[in-house]
Design a protein around this nucleic acid. Structure first.
Lengths: 211, 211
DNA sequence: ATCAATATACCGGAAAACCAGTAGAAAAAA
DNA sequence: TTTTTTCTACTGGTTTTCCGGTATATTGAT
C-alpha cells in the first residue's frame, strides 16, 4: 500500500544545505519537502497557521538556538516530529535537544537512505539517531561513568538511608548495629567519594548514580 | 535485495510468551528465532560461546533482574541489540534499562508488525520504543516536574553552595553575610523541601531538579 | 505609598556530625 | 589455608548542624 508522502519542513540558514537536502529527498516519493526557512522566527510564524509532519532542524540558526526551537515548535504543534541536524556534534547539546523532545538527530553527512529512514521512523513516532551520534553519546556517558569508587553492599545501603535523611542513631537502630559502626561507614563513604560532609556526599553519589 | 534473516534470542520464563513470540515471528522471513532460554544464567552461558543479533529480554526473570541482565549481556557481546519486554511498565525501571543500554522497549501486547519493525531498527543500531512506553516515560517526566516549591534566588544560590559541601561559615564568608543569616536560609530551604537535614535536602533538590 | 516577600541578623541550647586513630570478628577471595 | 576485605566497635574530642523563637532592613509589586 502507498501512503501519502510525509510532508517535510527544512530549517537551515545555509542555502547549500537546503538544496542538498531537497535533492537527496526528491528521489524518494515517500517524502516531499513542503517548504523551507532560513531562520527560527519565520519557521514559527509559518507553523502558527500551517503544519507539516516532520521538521529537519539545523541546530545553529542565526536568531534562535536549536534547543529553544525544539520547545517552541512542540509548543505550537505537539505532534510534529523533529530531527536535529548539525555538522559537528556536542554531546551536551544533543542531550538537551533530546530532553526537549527531538525524536531524531543526524549529522549532515547522512546518506539519503538514512535520512528517509529517520524521517519515516520519526513520523511514526519513534526515535532515530545516526550511528555517529550514538557513538558520541555513548562516549560522553562512558566518560561520566569511569572512575566509580567501589562501595560495599553495606555502604551502599547506609548511603541510601543517609539520603533519606535518617540520622546515625536511627540507622543504627534500624540495622541493629552500633551507632559508632554506622558512623564509621559514613566516614568511609565520605572518604571514598572525597567529600567532607553528608550534603555533598549525597550530591556526588547522585552524580555518580550510586543512589 | 534480500538480507539473511536477523537471528533472535528470546529470554522469558513464561512458555506461553515464548511460543507466542515464535509464532508471531515465524511469518516474517526477515527474522528467525535461533533459540530461547527461561532464565538469565543459561542465557549468559549460551552467549559466552555463541551469539545472535537481537535479544528479546523479559524484564522479570527468576534469577537475574532485567537491568543487570542488560549490562551482563552487553559486557559479553557489545554489539547485540537488546529489546526489553514486559507486561506492565514502571518508568524508573525502563529508565534504568535505557541507561544500561537497551535499544528498544515494548509491552507484551505489541503487534507482529511492531515487533519486526523494532527488531529491524535495533538490529541496525537504532532505538525503538513502543508508543505506550513513550507515553509512560513522558508522563513520568511530567509528574516529576509538577509541584516545585518556589525558592528565592538567594536560596537557590545557597542551596548549590551547600551541595558543594561548604559549611555555613564558609558560605557566609563567601557571600559577605553573617553565618546566622546563612543558617536561616538553610533552615528555610529545609522547611520548604520538607526535610530535616542537609543530606536529604540535597537529595530532594536533585530529584526536583533544583540543582 | 503601602504591603508582602525577601534578605538580613540574633540568642541559647540540644543534637548530630565530623575528625583522628585503633582494632577485633566475620566473611570472601586467593 | 592464608590473606584480604568488609563489617563491626571503640575513645575522646571539636565542629557543625538543627531547633524554637524573634526581629529589622530592603526590595518589589500594587
Amino acid at each position: 500500500m502507498q501512503h501519502k508522502p510525509i510532508q517535510i519542513l527544512i530549517v537551515d540558514d545555509h542555502p547549500m544545505v537546503i538544496e542538498g537536502l531537497k535533492t537527496l529527498l526528491s528521489d524518494d516519493d515517500r517524502v516531499t519537502v513542503k517548504t523551507h526557512f532560513m531562520n527560527g522566527t519565520d519557521t514559527l510564524t509559518f507553523l502558527a497557521k500551517d503544519t507539516v509532519n516532520v521538521v529537519l532542524l539545523d541546530v545553529n540558526l542565526p536568531d534562535i538556538n536549536g534547543v529553544e526551537m525544539v520547545s517552541k515548535i512542540l509548543n505550537i504543534r505537539a505532534n510534529i516530529g523533529i530531527i536535529g541536524l548539525s555538522t559537528y556534534s556536542e554531546p551536551s547539546i544533543i542531550n538537551q535537544m533530546i530532553k526537549n523532545g527531538v525524536k531524531g538527530y543526524l549529522l549532515k553527512n547522512a546518506t539519503a537512505d538514512e535520512l528517509v529512514n529517520a524521517i519515516s521512523q520519526v513520523h511514526q513516532g519513534h526515535f532515530y539517531f545516526g550511528s555517529e551520534v550514538q557513538k558520541i553519546l555513548a562516549d560522553s556517558v562512558a566518560q561520566e561513568h569511569n572512575d566509580l569508587p567501589r562501595l560495599t553492599r553495606r555502604e551502599k545501603h547506609i548511603l541510601t538511608l543517609i539520603a533519606d535523611g535518617k540520622t546515625t542513631n536511627t540507622i543504627a537502630e534500624e540495622l541493629f548495629i552500633s551507632p559508632l559502626t554506622v558512623e564509621t561507614h559514613r566516614r568511609n563513604l565520605m572518604q571514598k567519594l572525597e567529600v567532607s560532609n553528608a550534603a555533598s556526599l549525597i550530591k556526588v553519589a547522585v552524580e555518580k548514580q550510586l543512589i
